[in-house]
């Protein structure tokens, strides 16, 4: 029994901690939303509504009930998969999230693939040739990634690569010719266009996702490159590297067979964190590139005081964050024998 009971208990503990984290997240967000000075009813009925209309709308939203009842009603709905209706779109929050989140996931995934490849590559170069021009170049790139406002970078990218060079598509997920011509199956436009067998729409979607993905990738590259460089430098001074060198191993072998396996746990953690940040929704990038993702959805909901949408979005992002962290922990634990104990 014991070999089965132990992992089962671990799984239950893990699920319990996720549930606890999400419950805390809902409660805190709910309280923040309700104690803010914003009046959501006015957002819905407008400032010219009569007191009767205002009161009717307030009652329809359930805001005339005690706070504890409002929370209990909401939490009960969440448990049954009902996140309520978004006040700002009139649609079920679940439907809104199912539409907005894939757009962000698609963008974030491509961005993190590019960002991770570039970041690790640049970090390796900087770490292996510290102090030289390569290192200086990587540091400048990192500095730019950290310090340049992303909306400005996005606008510059649009100006250069869309407006001047005509290399990529402009704002939006598709050109107007293809706008809403693809039936959403997964919500991931690249997959849906392929499923529909529409090659033109697929290439059009690629041309539109490239710029925002590159801008976000640049932002991720900065962090990943710096941490990769630091990890490489630390490993280079360790005895096993000196031993490998003394044994006549080439630089490539030392990096590929010795250093990278030793820093992969760090790299996975850094990349997972960067991915989680991108999944939260890059509000400015999504705004500049007219990308209908979760970041813009949440921002619009915040300005509209749309509490069900804010709560639903926060819950989704929280769940992603916790899941991603847990998966990273599992991966890191599997890769690093020291953490298995």
């Amino acid at each position: 029994m014991r070999p089965i009971a132990k992992p089962l208990a671990g799984l239950l503990r893990w699920l319990g901690s996720i549930a606890l984290g999400l419950a805390g997240l809902i409660l805190v967000t709910f309280l923040f939303a309700h104690f803010s000075p914003i009046d959501p009813v006015i957002r819905i009925v407008g400032d010219k509504a009569t007191p009767e209309t205002y009161d009717a709308a307030k009652a329809a939203l359930g805001l005339d009930r005690p706070l504890i009842l409002q929370f209990a009603h909401y939490a009960g709905g969440v448990l049954t998969g009902d996140f309520g209706t978004a006040w700002s779109t009139g649609q079920p929050v679940g439907v809104d999230l199912a539409r907005a989140f894939p757009a962000t996931v698609e963008l974030a995934t491509i961005a993190i693939i590019i960002g991770a490849a570039a970041g690790v590559g640049l970090g390796l170069i900087a770490g292996l040739w510290p102090g030289g021009w390569r290192d200086a170049t990587v540091r400048v790139v990192s500095l730019l990634g950290y310090s340049v406002p992303i909306f400005w970078l996005g606008l510059l990218a649009l100006l250069l690569f869309y407006a001047r060079l005509h290399w990529f598509g402009g704002p939006g997920r598709q050109d107007v010719t293809y706008e809403m011509t693809t039936v959403p199956v997964t919500g991931f436009l690249l997959i849906d266009t392929l499923l529909a067998g529409d090659k033109d729409a697929f290439f059009d979607a690629i041309s539109h996702i490239c710029l925002p993905a590159l801008v976000l990738a640049f932002y991720s590259t900065a962090g990943i490159a710096r941490l990769t460089r630091a990890a490489i430098l630390e490993e280079l001074h360790k005895e096993y590297v000196t031993t490998a060198r003394a044994k006549g191993a080439s630089q490539a072998r030392i990096v590929l067979r010795h250093i990278l396996p030793n820093i992969r746990a760090t790299l996975i953690t850094v990349i997972a964190l960067a991915y989680a940040v991108l999944l939260e929704g890059a509000v400015f990038t999504e705004t500049v590139f007219a990308w209908p993702g979760i970041g813009r959805y949440l921002t619009i909901s915040l300005f509209a005081s749309d509490i069900p949408a804010i709560l639903g979005g926060t819950l989704l992002i929280g769940a992603c964050f916790i899941t991603l962290n847990s998966v990273t922990d599992l991966l890191v634990g599997g890769l690093d024998p020291r953490l298995k104990r």
Partner: peptide, 13 residues
């Protein structure tokens, strides 16, 4: 087709 472009600079482009 009324396309949502929230950013004014992007609309200009």
């Amino acid at each position: 087709i009324i396309k949502n472009v929230a950013d004014a600079a992007s609309r200009r482009l």
